[in-house]
Design a binder for these strands. Structure first.
Length: 465
RNA sequence: CGGGGCGUAGCGCAGCCUGGUAGCGCAUCUGUUUUGGGAACAGAGGGUCGUAGGUUCGAAUCCUAUCGCCCCGACCA
């Protein structure tokens, strides 16, 4: 993308309404615009990151064997009357009435709706296990929205629901989700720690919240310092293997890590003093096992091998997709702006032309742009008629992890400069080497591209009838 | 919902107390000179002062109502 043709309304000054750093930076980097309290438009740059986060969530869900679908934002109130939550949920639920005077609600979550779908179409244990999920906009009418997209009223969330014949099977689904979530967050450059949590209005016995440590976090958290040394990393796992998933769960939850809701001072004090940590965290996901709470209330049963009808065991699992963008920025920024992890960056690399209009630098930039694009990468080329300082400031603000600087001096000597946003380190090299280096950096994330065949991608698809 | 604050040009703000031609910085547009970390100069455009009502010869300014937004608290992915 050429910046001169893009829509990137960056702000030099910080809008008055933003208090925390992620909110300020998202506004300044032209990623979002507030529409009303807790409701935002996603401008092109923000939209791109949102889609990247969403893509990672999808890929990891599918890898774990979960099945994507899409349910509506508006739900009939009757479903919620069945579960008893229409009255229980309180004013946080946005209630709507249509022209026929039917009660609707803007869904804050989808347990009822998915259970309704399940009971309509599944009646045999042979169709289990089943885990369905979707990524859809939710609405919770928060009393006081704040912190930008971290605590909005409208938010994008992945919510998934598992249906299993037995409690044991459902607990495996729980473990499987925990493992897939660890992978998901690590791909976004985040360390999210599973912590024992409170089940809230969803209900249930087992639940863990995933928290990203950050000073601006809403929850106070208590944990054993050893837990931050744990990495899921590149290990292979068979999501169908009960023992493997169980082992990962034990590895990641055996050390003390709790939110203030479930904090147990006596247990905490058993940790050696130098390993006790009290910090703040941003909740970016939660997994629940709640047994037959909804299947009982709504009659979601299957026939077992013995012919008897049994209520299915369920769990639900959420990832705050839009909130993650705020969490990532909270965890990865400096005084100059955002520092995107490679996994979610809106553009892979920025190209800064220091002397726009100079034939040689223009040509070098075009060459870089084309070569990077040919590698399947998306560069952002700052081709505006701006001075160097303004271009650097914009690049730093929007946080692209890599920048190639092209100036007349370097071009004369056949070199450009590759700079890491994170470390600030710059290395001079030939344009060809710079392209090669950037391609290498992203290669692990693009290994699939070379092998992929996309039929008719570049042309219209004809049918002959 | 309790407490506090703010609505004046795209953004950040002054002006309000003490009523009398609506201002500043940034951004935008034109031109010239600049050109490796948010350039300089000259010129230009842009505002129903959140909205409604009232007081007054006259309201951004005073009064009343209302809408919106932000902060602290209780609540939440």
């Amino acid at each position: 993308m050429r910046l001169s043709r893009y829509f990137l309304p960056v702000l030099k000054e910080t809008p008055a309404e933003a208090q925390i750093v992620s909110h300020r930076l998202m506004l300044r980097a032209g990623m979002i615009k507030q529409s009303s309290a807790g409701i935002y438009s996603w401008l092109p740059l923000g939209f791109k990151v949102l889609k990247n986060i969403e893509k990672i969530v999808h890929e990891e869900q599918i890898r774990a064997g979960h099945i994507p679908m899409l349910m509506p934002t508006l739900q009939p109130a009757d479903l919620w009357r069945e579960s008893g939550r229409y009255d229980a949920y309180g004013p946080e639920m946005l209630r709507i009435r249509d022209r026929q005077d039917r009660d609707l609600l803007f869904g804050p979550t989808n347990e009822e709706m998915i259970t309704d779908i399940f009971r309509a179409h599944v009646s045999s244990y042979k169709d289990l296990p089943l885990t369905l999920y979707h990524i859809q906009w939710k609405f919770r009418d928060e009393i006081r929205p704040r912190f930008g997209v971290m605590r909005g009223r409208e938010f994008l969330m992945k919510d998934g629901y598992n249906f299993d014949l037995t409690k044991e099977d459902a607990l495996h689904a729980y473990n499987r989700h925990l493992v897939s979530y660890l992978r998901t967050y690590e791909r976004m450059g985040l360390q999210a720690i599973p912590m024992r949590a409170d089940s809230g209005p969803i209900g249930g016995d087992d639940t863990h919240e995933f928290l990203v440590l950050a000073e601006t976090g809403e929850s106070e958290v208590f944990y054993d310092a050893q837990i931050t040394d744990l990495k899921f990393g590149e290990r292979e796992i068979d999501y169908d293997n009960v023992d493997q998933c169980q082992a990962v769960l034990e590895e990641f939850t055996s050390r003390y890590a709790r939110t203030d809701e479930t904090h147990d001072t006596a247990e905490f004090d058993k940790i050696p003093e130098d390993r006790r940590r009290v910090a703040r965290g941003i909740e970016v996901g939660q997994i629940f096992y709640f047994g037959t709470k909804y299947s009982d209330a709504m009659g979601a049963t299957v026939q077992g091998p013995d012919g008897a009808k049994v209520a299915v065991h369920m769990g639900s699992h959420g990832i705050g997709v839009s909130r993650l963008m705020g969490a990532i920025i909270e965890a990865s920024h400096d005084d100059n702006g955002i520092i995107w992890p490679e996994g979610v960056t809106p553009f892979h690399v920025g190209i800064v032309n220091l002397r726009q209009g100079d034939a040689e630098t223009d040509k070098a930039c075009e060459g870089l742009y084309n070569a990077l694009t040919a590698h399947g990468l998306e560069p952002l080329y700052d081709d505006r008629e701006e001075r160097a300082g303004a271009k650097f400031a914009t690049m730093d603000l929007i946080g692209l992890p890599w920048r190639i600087t092209v100036g007349p001096r370097g071009v004369k000597n056949g070199v450009v400069e590759l700079t890491s946003r994170r470390t600030g380190e710059s290395v001079e090299m030939t344009p060809a080497d710079a392209v090669k280096r950037v391609a290498e950096i992203y290669a692990p994330h693009h290994a699939h591209v070379a092998a992929m065949v996309e039929p008719m991608a570049q042309r219209s698809f004809h049918t002959w009838l």
